[in-house]
Design a protein around this nucleic acid. Structure first.
Lengths: 135, 135
DNA sequence: CGGCATCCAATAGGATACTG
DNA sequence: CAGTATCCTATTGGATGCCG
């Protein structure tokens, strides 16, 4: 016989999960990879992120700063220059993130295959439904 | 001197990243953990997810089915019974996900500390601004 | 250059009621 | 029981323009 699931199994996870620390976030992971190789400027990061709007990039960077993952340094120059650096804490995120990326790369073919198989079968179903409604 | 970032460093990642496979998704990771211990029924999963609406849970499960992460089995009974099972592919996701969870748990204190420190400093800033505008 | 302010569209997600 | 259907709101993210 099967054990019932603990209703509160995610009680602590609501705080520690993706909702608190924007790891699952669309952009956070990419920003980290951009900063792996050293400090980068705002516009440098913006390029590989395929022209994400400055608003969104700012929000992402601010959130990461808030969580102590990146540090923001402003140089009082003309024109102004701002650099973002991965903090030691931010660097520790590289490992688990690499695990996720590795999984994606390794299993992408399987996922694509499953997706196509699903599409085929649902197509057949749709056709069957059309037949039925035509009666 | 610093190397420029490759503008296309995420060219393949757009397909393999969180956007394609809903890993970073708020619910997907939790569903997987619910199914680790064996097949579960719809309503069983719904409980620890703190009463997520059936609509959202359905969407999540359907997406995971589409990607070959879970399998849906309908038993022709009265009342009807449906069970969701982790596929072998779905099981392979447990490892990288565990890595992420471990990180969260391990570094949560640091993140919380950074967050509080940030809040304190921005509070001081706000007070300073108020002083300025009162002049 | 590196933002911020504002407006707007698209999407996600919740509440509720109903069905096979 | 396991959803579907409908409605509605909140959040996300894009576009644009301005500023230090």
């Amino acid at each position: 016989m099967r054990q019932p699931l603990d209703p509160d199994m995610f009680a602590g996870c609501r705080a520690s999960g993706a909702s608190l620390i924007r790891i699952g976030d669309k952009w956070t992971s990419r920003v980290i990879r951009c900063l792996e190789s050293g400090p980068r400027r705002f516009s440098e990061i913006q390029v590989p992120l395929r022209g994400v709007t400055p608003k969104v990039l700012t929000e992402t960077l601010r959130a990461m700063e808030r969580d102590g993952l990146v540090e923001r340094t402003v140089y009082a120059e003309r024109p102004p220059r701002v650099e973002y650096t991965l903090t030691p804490l931010g660097h520790t995120l590289r490992e688990p993130m690499a695990a996720g990326c590795a999984w994606s790369e390794a299993h992408l073919p399987e996922v694509m295959e499953a997706r196509e198989a699903h599409e085929r079968s649902s197509l057949v179903q749709d056709m069957a439904e059309q037949q039925t409604s035509q009666r």
